[in-house]
Structures are given as C-alpha cells and as structure tokens.
Design a protein around this nucleic acid. Sequence first.
DNA 1: ATCGGTACCTGCACGC
DNA 2: TGCGTGCAGGTACCGA
Length: 264
Amino acid sequence: MPELPEVETVVRSLAPLAGRRIVSAEFRASRSLRGGDPQRMAERLAGRRIHTIRRYGKFILVSLSGGGYLLLHLGMTGRLSLGGKPGKHTHAIFTLDRGVLQFDDSRQFGAVEVHDQFPARIARLGPEPLEVPAEDFARHLRRHRTCVKALLLNQTFVRGVGNIYADEALFRAGIHPLAQTARLRTDRALRLHQALAEVLTEAITAGGSSISNYVDANGRQGLFQVSHRVYQRTGEPCVNCGTLIRRVLVGQRSSHYCGRCQKR
DNA sequence: ATCGGTACCTGCACGC
DNA sequence: TGCGTGCAGGTACCGA
C-alpha cells in the first residue's frame, strides 16, 4: 500500500501506543517474517514497553524498553490495525496492556522483524526527502547514471518515495520520467526537489492516497488520490494542457506522464 | 560500485 | 461461470 505519506499517516495513528506494554505477541510463519523464528520473536517482545514509534522512509521503527526494536514494513499490501479481527492474511498480533495491534499483508511483501540493534537496513537508506537540503539533492542527483524516475525510487538516494509520488513530483517539475539524471541542469533538479516536497506535504495533509485497500490504523482512508494529476490517469487529459496522459515502463514500473508538459 | 532485470506473493479487473 | 492475462503502493538479489 504505502509510500511516505501513507506510512506517515499510519505512524501518526499509532501515536497512542507510546508507553503501552506488549503483553504477548503471536506470529504466523510467513514470508513477512523474513525467516525469523516466530516463537523466538514472540519471546523477545513479551513484556517490553513501547518507547517511540517513528518512520524512516517507508519503514516503521518501534523502539522498545531494554534497547530492542520492532521493525515493520508494509510492502504493497501491508496493513496495521488497532483491534481488528484476525483473518486469512494476518501475520502478527500484538496484545498490549490496553488494546491489540494487528499486522495483515496479503502479498507478503511487507516485513516484521525484531532487532537488538538499530537495524542496518534502515541505516543504509538515503535522507528523508523533506529534510535533505535542495543543493545536496541536486548534487547527488547528477552523480548517478540512470533515468530520474528510477533514481527517485532508489531508497538509498532518498527514502520513502514510491511510484505514485515519483510520477506526481516529476509532473509538477515538468521532467520526463526517462530524463537522464546526469544531464539534468541544476535549476531543474532544484525544481524537482521542490515539487517532491510539495506533493509529499500535501499528501500527508490529506492522509495519504487510498488506492485499493489503504487505510490508517483506525481504518480511515486517505484523500489524496483525488489530487493525482498523472498517476493511473493513462488516456485522460493532462490537467495543464489537455494532452492525453501516457504510460511507459521504467524499470518494470508503470510511469505516467504528459508528453507535452514533461521534457527530457 | 552501479545498473537493469528478475523473483517473491495474492487479488482483482478484464476479455473471451 | 470459469479461465487466462496483465496489473498492483514494495525490496532483495543476481550477474554484467
């Protein structure tokens, strides 16, 4: 389901869990556990108190009393819910001293992991797009030899941008998804940084984009999908010029763009 | 060291 | 109704 704005919305909806104690945890063996032993994971969590819940890109990091971490990733279809009913795709159930947190994920591209140390997976990520200085963003962009859409999706470049917001930011910046990063002039790179910040900020305010089944931990949908200008609008007119929106594959991912407004 | 391509899963919408 | 196809917000891993 989720990119940065959706994960941010979920994390905010989980804020009331700070200070709660994990009475017990129950895991169902699945790909989401990444080979971790369900029994052992449950033992490591039982009795721990939730300290903070923070977002790193698309990851959710729960720090626990005693120094451990619970790391969550929603993948494409992951869902966290407070007090839901376990179903076919429930992979984890955390029983708290007050309430229950449940993790569901039909495609199992998400992750639930228990760590003793700050997870290396997170340490490897690039900066937050809403925190990286524009000049750094523009400079780093030019160091890569790839097309700009692929780079935006690269989590070691910036963390948290996915297919929706990459397309939306490129449209707002007037940059073609297949533009080569090494050849992007600084002013255009700065515009992209600005466009990315704007679209992410607006989407967070709207509670994310609810496409298919995304909801926050309280079951509330986001509203930002109505503001999409190119994403999944193939064949519809561009909001700026009326040209029909096109779709092209970039690194096996659908990319939506206006051939007139977005230049290579 | 960076890349592009592929694999991993299930569900849904669509055309026949 | 059923079946095959293509598509879907994700990351990891492979070889070039």
